[in-house]
Design a protein around this nucleic acid. Sequence first.
DNA 1: AAGTGGTCTAGACCACTTC
DNA 2: AAGTGGTCTAGACCACTTT
Lengths: 230, 230
Amino acid sequence: MSQALYQRIAASLRQRILSGGHVTGDVMPSENELSQAYHTSRVTVRKAFQILESEGLIKARQGKGYIVQPPRSSVFTLVFGEESDSYRCLAVDIQLPEPETVRLLGLREGQPVISIRRVLERDGSPVAYDEKYIPYERGRPVVEQELHFSEFPDLLADRFATLSLRTELHIRTAFPPERVRRVLGCRQEKLLTLEKLVLSAEGERLGFGLEYLTPQYGPLKASSGLPPIE
Amino acid sequence: MSQALYQRIAASLRQRILSGGHVTGDVMPSENELSQAYHTSRVTVRKAFQILESEGLIKARQGKGYIVQPPRSSVFTLVFGEESDSYRCLAVDIQLPEPETVRLLGLREGQPVISIRRVLERDGSPVAYDEKYIPYERGRPVVEQELHFSEFPDLLADRFATLSLRTELHIRTAFPPERVRRVLGCRQEKLLTLEKLVLSAEGERLGFGLEYLTPQYGPLKASSGLPPIE
DNA sequence: AAGTGGTCTAGACCACTTC
DNA sequence: AAGTGGTCTAGACCACTTT
């Protein structure tokens, strides 16, 4: 059982790049050249090129050709929230935000925010604490039920197409504030901390989240390269 | 200036899924149906479907159709090593590994490893410390020059196609050992810690890396959704 | 003007799933 | 057998870059 032609062409071209036959900045042979060399149609060659493009090895430039890209820096895919983790909601409030939140969300002075505080428990012990802030606008009802169970993208899904949202995540270590330590029952110690900023496609800041993970939560897992499962 | 037809079809199908017109498990209209509905060729409809497939909204099943997938859990893309960070190599040794390394790499007893230790300095101050371990095999020369400057995937590139490698990354907080604290000049405090395990496509464990980041390194940055730039 | 990639057509045959 | 996606052909016209 043979591979498809476009896959064999892609493999051949990939090999040429990885072995140094074509280096960064080089223009690959054109679609026309290759379709003749492989005695196939341009569409088939094109499909091979698009695989390599999706792998980040080359980039198409109309009128020029396919340009070999510099080696990618490490790109990892981080997946979380997959497990059967269920958060327990501690409080939903409408409140005046802290200065940090005002800054990150670009709020006008005096504008209140909806705040959602949750805790994740495993085996009866709290292992993570979660705070979210969304600008409060008069006239938009707060559906508390939704807030209890929803993750960030879903919280905003009624107002924005999910795929038009972007989330920026910063991972650091930080000392949690006292109110968080009280819930997590941990001593004065730096915790793994996730800061999420949700943006619209236009760059409008829609929400801000802060999550503190105790060592019991376990590591964040990420992977690069071939998919882990299959 | 109008969008390409395949993009408009993709947008329309995407909208139907996001608005709930098609829910998880549904079979989308077939390529033939849609090519007639849009008065276009099957190839054009197909291209639209493949965009949605790359977005994870649907999955193709030969003989059945395109199936709507369950909403993705949060998937973030973590990029690092992009900046002009240059590591300084502290040492390259061939040594007997610590038990933890033996376990992670699945080494036989007494098998030595190549160890590479590096430090990242900014403005003259160390901000990160990096250890890598690769099983040492007699007869394979160690090209020290390569080790000094290379990142993990490149280190193994002569033996494995880069794209056949997979790296698993665990992010946690941990106390660095004393030899690391000495280099980083930091006190007894938990640091952001990255554990990397490099695997071949067959699951063979090829390398193990440990990286300690000081607060001065800054946060790890990740994003999901639309690309940050463009 | 010539060459490149970007889009698109109207077919064809195959492998797979369902009936 | 009928319908589905997977692969492939041999053209076409367009927008863009280079000469």
